[in-house]
Design a protein around this nucleic acid. Structure first.
Lengths: 106, 106
DNA sequence: TATTTTCGTAACCAAACGGTTACTTATGGA
DNA sequence: TCCATAAGTAACCGTTTGGTTACGAAAATA
């Protein structure tokens, strides 16, 4: 499953922001939504399939943890157009400044 | 139609990057893909519905222009997690430095 | 041991998605 | 005027999506 596809659903984005605060068992996640647990289970399955969530078993509970680094693909894609939605004038503005080399530099 | 949903499809992301270089008539867009023009028409319709593309009529051609500022929603959403996928240590690092005020400053 | 709780999963369903073909309209050019 | 080209749109189709209910397995608890 594609990460872009994974974050397309608003419920899944809410799950991500929920888990960004704390890892939670499946039921605890489900209690935050107006739908049945199996529906949340399906969303969590999609999120784990693309690495956005990992699950560790603890007793009879499964703790879900979000792996935010997996959002890199989204970040890299959108950042190439960043100067169109921020006040950053141009990507070129981020080039390191060049300094004149003094002639006695080795 | 949601912008997150709009960029979920890889064809639509390709259309966006294609139009980021230049505005193009519908057929010109379609020639870049291995599918029929009506299929591309549908994708363009979805992109225009959420403001990611505008179309201006010119003779019998319709020029498509991408509106990259509409990606702001994506950008703002993903940037709150940016420090997880870049080497930026923490958002707090962006705070303006504080300077000691000299006592003769007005 | 019996019961409750947590969770996965299968089966099902309606709606949306992503494509096609066929047809129509509008414009430009011979 | 007649034809070619650009593009929209309707109808259709198979697959995917996002939800449900029903059931079963494993772990904690009485």
């Amino acid at each position: 499953m594609d990460v872009f596809q994974a974050i397309a659903d608003p419920t899944r984005r809410q799950i991500i922001s929920l888990l960004a605060n704390a890892s939670l068992p499946v039921n605890a996640v489900a209690h935050n939504f107006d739908m049945t647990r199996p529906a949340i289970s399906k969303h969590l399955r999609i999120l784990t399939k693309c690495g956005l969530v990992t699950i560790r078993k603890e007793g009879r509970e499964r703790y879900c943890t979000v792996v935010l680094s997996q959002l890199a693909a989204i970040g890299h894609w959108v950042i190439q157009y960043q100067h169109f939605w921020t006040d950053v004038p141009d990507p070129a503005a981020y080039r390191r400044p060049t300094y004149k080399r003094r002639k006695d530099d080795q």
